[in-house]
Computed example of a mutant assay.
Amino acid sequence: MEQQAGAISDAESKVMEVLWQAGRAMPAEDIVAALVNGHQWQEATIKSLLNRLLNKGAVSAQKEGRRYLYTAVLKREHWLTSESKGMLDRLFGGRIAPLVAHFGKHRKLSKTDIAELKRLIGELDDDQ
């Protein structure tokens, strides 16, 4: 059963991405190896992030011999939903249309994006 994790920081989300992509329990050294080069973080920083995630209930740890294996408890989809809802609430009053209008106004929507949005809207209309 998934626990409701506390808010995940940007740095913590990088650790979570490693666990989500792996889809399995991982020892700290594998998580460190996945992050140390790309983010220029020290091992101690990554282990601190793991501890914070453990305290928030976003990951669990199981002892295996002399090491711990870390597993994502927080599901990526749940985190993504929470993050996107928070962003929409903070910036656009919880509405999607002003978000799309903002990107359209600043020319951040490609023709492919617009075609996909039209398709999605069509599917939503069909469902109702």
Rank of each mutant, 00 (worst) to 15 (best):
M16I: 01
R107I: 06
S13Q: 12
S13V: 02
E123Y: 06
P98Q: 07
L80N: 11
K118L: 10
L50N: 04
Q128R: 11
Y70H: 10
L80P: 01
A5I: 01
K14Q: 13
M87R: 15
E64K: 14
R52F: 12
R24A: 14
I31L: 02
K63R: 15
E12Q: 14
E12N: 01
A115M: 09
D126F: 07
L35P: 05
T71R: 11
E17K: 14
R67P: 03
R24V: 05
Y68I: 01
R119K: 15
L69T: 08
R76W: 06
D127A: 12
A72T: 01
L117K: 02
W41I: 02
Q40H: 14
V32N: 06
G93D: 08
E83S: 11
V15K: 08
A11H: 09
A34P: 06
K111C: 07
E83Y: 12
M26G: 05
A33G: 04
L69K: 10
E77S: 12
V15M: 04
T81D: 08
I46P: 03
E2N: 08
A58L: 00
R95Y: 10
G93K: 09
H106Y: 14
V15C: 08
V15T: 09
L91Q: 09
D126S: 13
V73M: 07
V100G: 04
A115E: 07
L124A: 12
F103G: 05
G38V: 05
L91N: 11
A115R: 10
L53P: 00
Y68D: 04
K75P: 06
G86N: 13
L91P: 02
A115V: 02
E123M: 10
R119H: 13
E83R: 15
I114H: 00
W41E: 09
D125C: 12
K47A: 01
D89N: 13
A33Y: 08
D10E: 12
S84E: 07
Q42W: 06
T81I: 14
L99H: 05
L54Y: 15
P98W: 10
T81A: 13
Q3V: 06
S84R: 13
K105Y: 13
L54P: 00
K56Y: 00
K111H: 08
A101S: 10
A72F: 02
A72C: 05
V100I: 15
A61H: 07
G94W: 07
P27W: 03
A34G: 10
K118E: 09
G6P: 02
G122E: 08
S84C: 09
L124N: 09
A101E: 14
I96H: 03
A61Q: 14
M87W: 13
S9Y: 00
G104I: 03
F92I: 03
G94M: 06
L120D: 07
L50P: 00
S110L: 11
L109F: 04
E123R: 03
P27E: 11
A61L: 02
G38Q: 06
R67A: 12
E29T: 14
G86Q: 14
L54N: 03
A25G: 15
A33N: 10
E12W: 05
V36R: 14
E2M: 09
T112E: 13
Y70Q: 05
L109R: 05
G6T: 08
